[in-house]
Amino acid sequence: MLMASNDMIAEYQRRIAVYEDEEAYKQLFFLLFEPLRQFAHSFIKSKESAEDIVSDVFIEIWSKRSELNQIDDLKAYMFVCVRNRCIKKLKYQKQTLSLDEAPVELSSQYATPDELTIGHDLNSRIHEAIEQLSPRSKLIFKLAKEEKMKYKDIASLLSISVKTIDAQLSTAVKRIASAIRFVSRSKS
């Protein structure tokens, strides 16, 4: 009976819109704040500014709660809101949003040993492989793996083609697979 996180988000969205449910709003915050903050931090160097941008998007969600039901995919919508606010902020600083300088961090880099099912050695080899990806590839990889976003949503969020995403993700996975095979060969 466990619900997938996307179903949970849709359920929280409905409850906020229909009942002004503060508890559902809190649960939504717990699910999405950190992914959105990390996404904002890819473009905005200041940690505080990135947090403020995401907090502002959450405030906007509450202030527009009665219209929330009109949004098809709340998570995708909030990522777009965060991106737009980042662009605005950068424009104010006479900068543009660049995917090629984005310092992307993967959450799983901070996994504690008991959260890892694959062993410490293997984990660090995998992360070495990921570190060698371009910032753009890394961001795509993070959005697909950690945020479970669809190719078409990543494509519209980052203004790149689905084909590019397919190719870059496959390359990333292939490199991870090589790292895994290297470890298993050296052990056997």
């Binding site: 799983s108 996994a111 890892l116 099912t117 694959i118 293997l122 950690e146 697979a177 095979r181």
Partner: peptide
Amino acid sequence: STVQAVEEFWRTNP
């Protein structure tokens, strides 16, 4: 086994 290991890594999100 490599595909399985990659899939396992993909599913691990703290």
